[in-house]
Design a protein around this nucleic acid. Sequence first.
DNA 1: GTGAAAGCGCTAACAC
DNA 2: GTGTTAGCGCTTTCAC
Lengths: 339, 339
Amino acid sequence: MTTMDADRSAPTLEAVARRSGLSRSTVSRVINGSPNVTPETRALVDAAIAELGYVPNLAARSLASRRSHAIALVIPEATSRFFTDPYFAEVVEGVAGHLEHSPYTLTILVSSETDPGRTSRYLQGGGVDGALVISTHRDDRSYVELSTKIPVVFQGRPMSPHGDDAVIVDVDNVAAARRATEVLIARGRRRIPTIAGPQDMAAGIDRLSGWRTALAAAGLEPGRVETGDFTPEGGAAALERLLASGEAFDGLFVASAQMAYGALERMRERGIRVPEDVSVTAIDNDRFAREATPPLTTIEQPTRAQGAKIAEILVNMIERRPFERVTIMDTRLVERESV
Amino acid sequence: MTTMDADRSAPTLEAVARRSGLSRSTVSRVINGSPNVTPETRALVDAAIAELGYVPNLAARSLASRRSHAIALVIPEATSRFFTDPYFAEVVEGVAGHLEHSPYTLTILVSSETDPGRTSRYLQGGGVDGALVISTHRDDRSYVELSTKIPVVFQGRPMSPHGDDAVIVDVDNVAAARRATEVLIARGRRRIPTIAGPQDMAAGIDRLSGWRTALAAAGLEPGRVETGDFTPEGGAAALERLLASGEAFDGLFVASAQMAYGALERMRERGIRVPEDVSVTAIDNDRFAREATPPLTTIEQPTRAQGAKIAEILVNMIERRPFERVTIMDTRLVERESV
DNA sequence: GTGAAAGCGCTAACAC
DNA sequence: GTGTTAGCGCTTTCAC
């Protein structure tokens, strides 16, 4: 058993000033890289900082300057799902990569599930200069409200009723799903059900609607709709239900590669050949799409680029530069063996 | 194109004081839950807070109180690996779960790879009350040094030369590897190579050493050692090299289930039957262990519990309560079909 | 139980 | 180019 030592209090800017024989303002100027300092004084101050091992106190700095130079990325999702989904990982990489070259520190805020108020108090309390929200379920209402208090950028259309003036970066999920379905139709498939995503998420709703549009445009009867939770297990379960319904099909559009991965596994077990018996397409070009058997034809969305984009826009908002309220990014078709 | 509105400045504690006809000190007491306030005053203040939508300024609060009530979990690893490894996800869940019931906010700090100084300045600048480090590569030297400035708890033995007085929570990786290898020996296996982890990580080194110990204790010749990077791909590549070496084997100990997953895939492709031709054991009871073909016999380490433990210890350090400097947690054998 | 006063460590006008 | 002077919004003795 041990106990923490009393902390020998850290050196202050004041100490650096005395040590270098200059005023606090000058020291502050050096620290903040002001051009109005002679190289000599700068050297003097830097030396004092190094000798003392001085590190600026963030709280004092942000209290005085009203900026924290920190940006939060909020995880509304249950922690485990967030970490398991390669999609999130790539978006985070895009964000981190962009901020790398800016003065902002990225902080991923694991919001308390039992007390969401704590998260929003943290965000509103000046702990960060702005927030990034990867939008998911319908209850991101509180984050949309947060938008009126501090700069917030959503990746993906938020489901809140008042989300219409939220700043967002997204892909056209309707068009993506439509395209994926058209690939099936072009292959001569005529009976095309879908495994849709959760209908309380914008991506889930939009992809379902894209599938409907494609079928209607081709004059085909809409097939059966089974929904899953975007996980492989959810996809597998949805496929079971589809089979259990007894409805025959020769094509299948799945709203995410993860779900398709699970569904393909089940089809293989049942002896359904892909693409011979059924052609399959999905959305997301992640490792599940690549590793599925057979590898999936999918619509790829630029995940890292979206991450970089939300970061870029947020920084523009914070620094009061002009920015786009809505950014729709391009998707592209990646053809593999499942069709 | 849009530009951010000027922010109508947030109400201050001062405003709440005026609104409720009380002093700032009293308002502060209410906010901080001091017992020395009559229920009536409390009600008065609460009403004013609600009407004004007051949210305390974190910077001011932590400047005055010298506490941020925030804890950082540092990701030293490349972002993508962190998010891909189920191990990290579970540790984070354990941490988050524990802090849920404390006044501390969890922040995952994505440390800048190009400028690690930024991360350490953030941590030393009072941005957080303490830090959690999931130890990995040999260069966590800077975090060990950080320990002298603020409370830091390591999950896993850090590789720094001066890491000996770091506060850590870990499992006995040597014993775990030894146990896993003994299972193979007990099955009558006699030629047992290993796919080891990176030798610049404590877990990689210790697991290799446990395998050696088991073999030596049984009077067996040490088999070949191939190292991987703890990923399925790394495991697959290591197995290829093992095969290429021409050395025959009837048992195989792999330092992580992820690597074993990749290795098993390759063995299946080569027609090597598990466990008929080769028995395989590994460490980590994650989804890779469960989903491998065949499912893996592994040593399970309590990931969530370790997360909860590091959080618990860190909070004790911060609040100057006694704590254990070294905590070694139990592992257990999980038997499946790979042996 | 409540209020007054003195900072916490820094930045930002404003003078010089 | 550098120093002086006020605060930033809160907590915290210390009186009452």
